[in-house]
């Protein structure tokens, strides 16, 4: 065997890979990303397929065709507006859950499915994964989507497949009215839009006058808890900055969760018992009924429960930011909180 001889032979210099090549990897990776992003900007240039450019609820500027004939609606709240604007015939697809696992999204109540004739529509899977193929197959000119769809997916539909997507996710009741006006604009249904707006304004005016009366008389707003679900730990409700919160305010109620930290907090039994609201409004439907709430902590000890001021209300009327919430939900809530008021 050849012996490595230290004194005479010099070993072949072993190639050393400089430590700096970490940097190379990172730079190459970053370079590829930059090229990709630049390419996507370049692609986006040619997406103007309609004469109207609008700003949606996420602040995105979207160019949409005027009065598109084929529309896919992803989100029950938007479907409500579309229906009330008389645009049902434009809808070629709605959101659904994984077809093999249950089909139509559970966000739709049985009434809505029947009223809107949803079972006849094609559905586009939005959960748990968004199905681009199904969307493309429907050949829509416009997609109206709530944030049940990943924003990243929305951008991809817009950019890659040149299908404009308008995101409608109003945070307040005023936002609902604005979104309806926007839809009216896109579909050129100003009359339907303004009559819907009138109906909405009428209800809102009634609410405002009730509030003025109460304030003028110095009558305090009744305290209440609006809950849409409950479990052994407590009651799920609306926190500050949500459309649910603004609904309660419009109905001249004092929400006991107005100072909550989270947007959609779960109040513990203790917190509810300590506040002991005058009214307790609980959502029903979607598999939830009074017995769901009976299992929540201190349910039977609450004054509202004992005095018969715990009232059930269809969740549809206050959990979706849509016209129905104002047209139906608001008057119902006012009737509960202020029975016999002039608003009725």
């Amino acid at each position: 065997m050849h012996l490595y001889d230290l004194s005479s032979s010099s070993a072949p210099p072993r190639r050393t890979v400089p430590l700096a090549w970490f940097a190379v990897v990172v730079i190459v990776a970053a370079g590829v990303s930059v090229v990709g992003i630049a390419a996507s900007y370049a692609l986006r240039g040619g997406s103007s397929s309609g004469p109207l450019t609008i700003t949606d609820d996420l602040g995105r500027r979207v160019t949409v065709p005027l009065d598109p004939a084929r529309v896919v609606v992803l989100g029950p709240s938007i479907m409500d507006s579309v229906y009330r604007l008389g645009l049902r015939s434009h809808v070629v697809g709605v959101d659904c859950y994984a077809p093999a696992l249950g089909g139509l999204s559970s966000d739709y109540s049985a009434d809505q499915v029947a009223l809107w004739n949803l079972s006849s529509s094609m559905c586009v899977q939005t959960g748990p994964t968004f199905d681009v193929e199904q969307l493309i197959a429907l050949g829509p000119q416009l997609v109206l989507a709530a944030t049940i769809v990943s924003v990243a997916a929305v951008e991809q539909i817009t950019q890659t497949y040149q299908i404009p997507v308008v995101m409608l996710q109003p945070a307040t009741l005023t936002g609902v009215i604005l979104d309806d006006q926007l839809l009216g604009e896109i579909f050129g249904v100003s009359s339907a839009s303004s009559s819907l707006a009138n109906a909405l304004q009428t209800v809102l005016a009634q609410a405002a006058s009730l509030q003025n009366d109460l304030t003028a008389n110095g009558t305090p707003f009744p305290t209440l808890l609006v809950t849409y679900s409950a479990d052994g730990n407590g009651y799920w409700t609306f926190g500050p900055g949500t459309f649910g919160e603004s609904l309660i305010e419009l109905a001249s109620g004092a929400s006991i969760s107005a100072n909550a930290t989270l947007s959609y907090p779960e109040l513990s039994g203790e917190q509810v018992l300590a506040s002991d609201p005058q009214f307790l409004v609980y959502g029903t439907g979607f598999g939830i009924n009074e017995s769901t709430y009976a299992g929540a902590p201190f349910w039977s000890q609450l004054t509202a429960t004992q005095d018969g001021r715990a009232v059930g209300m269809d969740s549809n009327y206050f959990t979706e930011p849509d016209p129905t919430m104002i047209l139906v939900g608001l008057p119902q809530l006012m009737a509960i909180l202020h029975p016999g008021s002039s608003a009725q």
Partner: peptide
């Protein structure tokens, strides 16, 4: 999930 992708994104992942 694998959906919601296009060739640009493919290219980025592929390169890296």
């Amino acid at each position: 999930n694998l959906g919601s992708l296009d060739w640009t994104q493919d290219g980025i992942v592929f390169g890296v």
